[in-house]
Design a protein around this nucleic acid. Sequence first.
DNA 1: ATGAAAGCGCTAACAC
DNA 2: GTGTTAGCGCTTTCAT
Lengths: 337, 337
Amino acid sequence: MQRVTIADVARRAGVSTATVSRALSGGRKVSDEVSERVHRVARELGYAVNPIARALRVSRTDTVGMVVPSIRNPFFTALVESVEHALGAEGKELLLCDAQSDPRVEASRLEALVTRNVDGIIVSPCHGTDSAPAVQRTADRLPLVQLDRFVGGTSTDWVGVDDLAAMRAVLDHVHAGGARSAAYLGARLTNSSSELRHTGFHRRAEELGLTVDPQWIQLGEYSVDWGERAVATLLEQGELPDALVCADDLIALGATRACRMHGVPVPERTQITGFDNIEFTRLAEPPLTTVAQPTDRIAAEAVRLLGDAANGTDTPRDAAHVALVPKLVVRSSTRGN
Amino acid sequence: MQRVTIADVARRAGVSTATVSRALSGGRKVSDEVSERVHRVARELGYAVNPIARALRVSRTDTVGMVVPSIRNPFFTALVESVEHALGAEGKELLLCDAQSDPRVEASRLEALVTRNVDGIIVSPCHGTDSAPAVQRTADRLPLVQLDRFVGGTSTDWVGVDDLAAMRAVLDHVHAGGARSAAYLGARLTNSSSELRHTGFHRRAEELGLTVDPQWIQLGEYSVDWGERAVATLLEQGELPDALVCADDLIALGATRACRMHGVPVPERTQITGFDNIEFTRLAEPPLTTVAQPTDRIAAEAVRLLGDAANGTDTPRDAAHVALVPKLVVRSSTRGN
DNA sequence: ATGAAAGCGCTAACAC
DNA sequence: GTGTTAGCGCTTTCAT
C-alpha cells in the first residue's frame, strides 16, 4: 500500500512541500487561496500526515504512556478509561502498560515508554519505596505525573484524592450511624494511599472517641480474599466492633461476604464501608457504602499537568500536588444519616 | 536531555554507524571482536535505539493497536490484560482505544491507528453490521484480527470461543440439574456472539425437548440493569421457567439480584447461568455457574495470527477462524452434576 | 567484514 | 508568502 506523502500533494498543488506543511499544520503564513488549494488536493489524494516522520522531526509523539499496578483492579480500569477519554479529547493516544504489581516489571515498562519518546507518563506506582528509583529516574527525563498513589522521596506532580478527608467522612458517617468502635481492614503500608487511609482512620477514630482494639487493625492486601480472611480472624478473636472500615472496595466486598456466611447481619450488627466506588459495590448484598473517587476529574487534571509540563518553560516549576475531595456514597451497608 | 545516538557510539568505538547498526540489531555480518567492542561502548554510553527513527526507516513500529467496545466491561478488561501480556512477551507495545460502544468512535480510532503505522490491529467490533465498513477498510490496509465478536460480510482473521458449543454445555448442564423449561436473557442481535449464543440456545433447547415460551426470550443489552429488568418482566408474565440462561455475566448478575429481591430461591426455584466468567461471578449470591473464556489463549492466538500476517508472503492467505473450546465453570447457581 | 551515502517523510531555518 | 535546503536517527544498498 503506497502512502500519499506530502511531496505528492505538493506536486499536484503546484507548490513546495514546505507550503503544504505550513498550510496543513503550521502557522498562518500561507495565502488563503493556496491554503485552500492544498487542502482540497490533500483531501482528494487522501493524504494523512505520517506521525512517525513528524515525531522524528519535532520529537513529539502525541502519545502518553500509562502504567498501572494491575488493570484487573476495577478502580484502575476506571482510571484508564477516564485517562483514555481525556487524552482522546486532545487528539492524543494512550500507550497502556500493566506492571503486574511488580516494581521490576514497572521499571522496565517505564524505561520502554521513555525509549519510545512518549510525551509524558502517567503512573500509579505499585510500591511506595521499591518503585521510587524508577519513577524518579523517569521523571528526570520526561513530564510525569503520579496518580492516586505516590512514591516517597520524589518530587513529581501528583493527583489523587484527599485520603485523610475521605477517612474523616467515613468515620463521621458510621459514628452518626451509632458506631462506637471500629476495625480497620487495610493493606500493608507499602504505598501512600495505604498509609494515609490508615493514618486518617486512626486520627479521626481518636477524635471521635471510638474504641479501636489493636487486634482490629488488619493489614493485608487489596483483594476480596483478604477481606474475607480478615473478618474470619476478627471473629475468632471475639466480638466484632460496630464498624468495619475497609481500605478499598475489594476488601469490603470480601468482608461483606464473610459476614453473610457467618450470619452477621449488616448493617444491624456491624457497618461496613469501602473505598473507590467500583461498579460492583452496587451489587453487593447489602450494597456498599463507599468513597467515590472522581476518576474523570483526576484524569483531566493529570492530562492538564502533563500538558503544562510539556509546554512550560524549562525552568522546573514546583511539583503540583492536586488532592481532590472525594464523595461519600451512602448505601445500605451502613446506618448513618 | 541529549540522547545518545548511533553516531556517538560509532565515534567512540571507532567504526561506522552502519557497523554499529549491524552489530546491535542487524544480521551476523560483523566480526566478533568489533561486535563486542560496539556492545560495550553502547552500554557505557547508555545507548538505546530510537524507535521513531527506526520506524520511519523500516516502517514497522512494534506496536499493536487494540480497540474494544468498552473497557468498563470486565470481560474486555481481562482480554486487554491478556493481550498486553502476550505482546509484552514479544517486546511489543499496546496502543489501547475505547470505542465507547459507538461504531463512529470505533471507526475514528481505527483510522487513527492506521495513520500511526501500528503493525497490526486487534478489534472486538461493537456492532455486527455498523462496524463492518470501518473494519473491512482497516483490514484492507493492515493485518487485523477480530476478537470475540466479528462483523458480517468481512474476511479477516478471527479468534474467539465456540459459542454454540458453549450453549450446548450450558443447556446440558441445567437439563441434568432437572430443568425442563428455560428462558434466554440476552442482548439484541447486533453482533455475532449475541446471535450465536441465541441460536445455540434455541438449537440445544429443542434437541433436549426443553419448553421455551416465546415470552421467555428477552433481548436487551449486556448490563446488570437489563438483567434485573428482564427478570421483572418475566415475573409479571407469570411463572418463571426452571432455568434462566443469560448471554453474559452482567445480565446473569442482574438476574440473580432480581431473584433475590423478589424472593425467588436460586437454584431451587430456578437455575441461573452466565457467560464469560468475570471475576465477580464468584462473589454473587449464590456464586454463578458460567462459561469461562480462555482469554490468555485467545490473546495468544490473536498475537500469533498478527505476526503471521505481518511476516507472511504478500499472497493473501485465507482468513483463519480460530474457535476455542470454552469451559463450563459450575458454581451454586445451578443444580447440574 | 566494513564504510560511504542515500533516504524514510516531515518541519524549521533561512533566503528571497 | 513561498521555495530551498538541512537534517531528525536509523537501516540498507552498494562499493570496497
